[in-house]
Amino acid sequence: MTAKKTSSEADKLKGSVKEAIGKLIGDGKVEAEGRAQQELPKSDRTPKLKSRS
């Protein structure tokens, strides 16, 4: 198994756990983040940018 495939599978697992936690605590934002994390490959995700204040 390649490192890229392993990383992809790990991201899907993390996403499913995040989605389940969101459902459990009733947080729609966390649930949606988990769902999105499962669907997108890591290379397609955009990094969160910090705004300069």
Results as ranks from 00 to 15, higher is better:
residue 16 S to R: 13
residue 39 E to Y: 06
residue 44 D to H: 09
residue 51 S to I: 11
residue 24 L to H: 08
residue 44 D to R: 10
residue 52 R to Q: 07
residue 17 V to W: 05
residue 13 L to V: 05
residue 29 K to N: 12
residue 17 V to I: 15
residue 10 A to T: 11
residue 52 R to A: 09
residue 4 K to M: 06
residue 8 S to C: 04
residue 13 L to S: 10
residue 51 S to E: 13
residue 14 K to L: 11
residue 19 E to R: 12
residue 41 P to A: 12
residue 22 G to D: 01
residue 26 G to R: 10
residue 23 K to L: 11
residue 19 E to C: 05
residue 6 T to L: 14
residue 43 S to D: 10
residue 46 T to G: 14
residue 28 G to F: 04
residue 34 G to W: 00
residue 50 K to N: 09
residue 42 K to I: 07
residue 35 R to E: 15
residue 32 A to H: 01
residue 24 L to N: 11
residue 25 I to Y: 14
residue 36 A to Y: 01
residue 8 S to N: 09
residue 19 E to D: 13
residue 14 K to I: 09
residue 20 A to N: 08
residue 23 K to C: 05
residue 31 E to K: 14
residue 18 K to Q: 15
residue 23 K to A: 14
residue 38 Q to G: 08
residue 45 R to T: 06
residue 51 S to Y: 10
residue 36 A to N: 06
residue 52 R to L: 12
residue 20 A to T: 06
residue 51 S to P: 05
residue 40 L to Q: 14
residue 18 K to W: 02
residue 33 E to H: 02
residue 15 G to Q: 06
residue 14 K to M: 12
residue 48 K to Q: 10
residue 37 Q to K: 09
residue 35 R to D: 10
residue 7 S to F: 07
residue 45 R to G: 02
residue 33 E to L: 08
residue 4 K to Q: 12
residue 30 V to I: 15
residue 51 S to R: 08
residue 33 E to K: 04
residue 16 S to T: 08
residue 10 A to E: 09
residue 28 G to L: 04
residue 17 V to S: 07
residue 11 D to V: 02
residue 16 S to D: 09
residue 26 G to W: 07
residue 15 G to C: 06
residue 7 S to A: 09
residue 24 L to Y: 04
residue 7 S to G: 14
residue 37 Q to F: 01
residue 15 G to S: 06
residue 8 S to T: 08
residue 49 L to G: 05
residue 26 G to F: 09
residue 38 Q to S: 13
residue 13 L to H: 04
residue 34 G to D: 00
residue 32 A to R: 03
residue 52 R to G: 05
residue 49 L to F: 10
residue 46 T to C: 07
residue 47 P to I: 06
residue 6 T to V: 08
residue 48 K to M: 07
residue 41 P to G: 03
residue 24 L to G: 03
residue 14 K to T: 08
residue 6 T to R: 12
residue 27 D to W: 03
residue 14 K to R: 10
residue 21 I to S: 05
residue 18 K to E: 05
residue 30 V to S: 15
residue 33 E to A: 15
residue 19 E to N: 08
residue 25 I to G: 09
residue 31 E to D: 11
residue 52 R to D: 12
residue 6 T to G: 08
residue 41 P to K: 13
residue 6 T to Q: 11
residue 49 L to R: 12
residue 18 K to S: 04
residue 20 A to M: 05
residue 50 K to I: 05
residue 12 K to I: 04
residue 40 L to D: 10
residue 18 K to G: 00
residue 13 L to P: 02
residue 16 S to I: 01
residue 18 K to A: 11
residue 8 S to R: 11
residue 23 K to S: 15
residue 24 L to C: 07
residue 9 E to W: 04
residue 49 L to Y: 09
residue 15 G to I: 01
residue 40 L to A: 14
residue 45 R to K: 14
residue 29 K to Y: 13
residue 43 S to W: 01
residue 20 A to H: 02
residue 52 R to P: 03
residue 49 L to Q: 11
residue 24 L to R: 07
residue 44 D to L: 11
residue 26 G to H: 09
residue 22 G to R: 00
